[in-house]
Simulated assay, not measured.
Amino acid sequence: MSPKAEAAPAELARVFFALGDETRLRLVALLCAGGMFSISQLTASTHISRQAVTKHLQVLADAGLVQDLRIGRERLWQFDPAQMEQARRSLEAIGRQWEDALGRLKSALEA
Rank of each mutant, 00 (worst) to 15 (best):
M1I: 06
S2Y: 04
K4H: 13
K4L: 15
A5C: 06
E6Y: 01
A7E: 15
A8N: 06
A10C: 08
E11K: 09
E11N: 03
L12W: 02
R14Y: 06
V15E: 02
V15S: 04
F16E: 14
F17W: 14
A18Q: 03
G20R: 03
G20W: 11
D21W: 03
D21R: 07
D21I: 01
R24L: 03
L27C: 02
L27A: 01
L27I: 03
V28M: 14
L30C: 09
L30Q: 09
S38D: 08
S38C: 07
I39K: 02
S40T: 11
S40W: 05
T43Y: 04
A44R: 12
A44Q: 11
A44P: 00
S49V: 06
S49C: 07
S49H: 04
R50P: 03
Q51C: 10
A52W: 06
V53K: 07
T54N: 05
K55P: 00
K55L: 13
H56L: 04
H56Q: 13
Q58M: 08
Q58E: 12
Q58K: 09
A61F: 06
A63E: 00
V66W: 04
G72M: 09
R73H: 12
R75G: 00
Q78V: 02
P81G: 03
A82L: 14
Q83A: 12
Q86R: 12
Q86W: 00
Q86H: 03
A87H: 01
R89Q: 13
S90E: 14
S90F: 13
E92T: 06
G95E: 15
R96F: 06
Q97D: 15
E99Y: 05
E99P: 01
D100H: 09
A101W: 14
A101L: 15
L102R: 10
A108V: 02
L109V: 05
E110T: 08
